[in-house]
Simulated assay, not measured.
Amino acid sequence: MSYVLLILGLALWVLGHMFKRIAPERRARMGDGGKGLFAAFILGGVVLMVIGYRGTDMIKVWYAPAFLVHVNNLLMLLAIFVFGMSATTGRLRGVMRHPQLTAVKIWAVAHLLVNGDLASIILFGGLLLWAVAEVIVINRSEDWVRPARGEPKGDVKLVIITLVAFAAIAAIHAWLGVWPFPR
């Protein structure tokens, strides 16, 4: 049953995020009330993914070598940094078109490197596929206007925020019983 919840959660996440791209006229007819509905889909998807993932039996598909933990942590630093580029006021603003979706792709690959169980492959692989598809759909449907570059001090803030966020995420993983560093 847990795998069903995991997959259903992924489906709600994808539907909640892609509906306005797949059916823009229908989404427009829903007006502002549709925002709440799709926010509920996304939140429900997250809840189902967490419950499903945590409830699955451990079915190992591969065993990751220990050195990949280092690669994972470096990729996670990069993912947090790239995600933050979407909100930076620094020189890096507008360097890439889809920093948040790119960060999700980096995050998913990092987690696939160190988690070789079936539930992880479904969760992180599914979110990786969604992020790739979302970028393709957006690129085909919308033109992009590159934002103006900001001041270098915004990039310094981004580095500091990245390091603090990484420490917080590592602490949360440790609190949940998943030690994110090599032993």
Rank of each mutant, 00 (worst) to 15 (best):
H111P: 04
L68C: 07
P152T: 08
L158V: 08
A110F: 08
V109S: 06
A66I: 07
I172Y: 15
G84N: 09
V71S: 06
A108Y: 01
L128D: 03
R140H: 13
G154F: 08
V156M: 11
T162A: 12
V71C: 01
A66T: 09
V114R: 04
I80S: 00
I169F: 09
G126R: 06
L74M: 11
D117P: 01
V159R: 12
L92N: 02
V82S: 01
H98F: 15
R146G: 02
L77K: 08
L74C: 11
H98T: 02
R91M: 11
E151L: 08
A171W: 10
K105D: 08
L129P: 00
A168P: 05
V82A: 03
G154Y: 04
P65H: 10
E142G: 03
I169W: 03
D143Q: 10
I138Q: 12
V82C: 02
L112T: 04
S141G: 13
F83T: 09
L75A: 02
A64S: 15
F166H: 15
A87C: 05
G84P: 06
V95M: 11
F124R: 03
I121M: 10
L128S: 01
I122Q: 06
A66N: 13
M96C: 11
G94H: 09
V109M: 08
V69F: 13
W179Q: 13
S141H: 15
V114P: 00
H173E: 13
V137G: 02
G90P: 02
N72E: 10
K157R: 12
V135I: 14
H173W: 12
G126V: 05
V109F: 11
L128I: 05
V95R: 08
A170E: 13
H98Q: 13
I80N: 00
L129V: 12
G84K: 04
W130F: 15
W179I: 08
H173I: 08
L78A: 14
R149A: 15
P147R: 07
V159S: 12
I169Q: 03
W130H: 13
N72Y: 07
I136W: 14
L78H: 00
H173M: 14
P65D: 09
A119Q: 00
K153L: 11
V114A: 09
L158M: 13
W130Q: 11
T162G: 10
N72A: 09
V61Y: 12
G84R: 03
H70D: 14
L75Y: 03
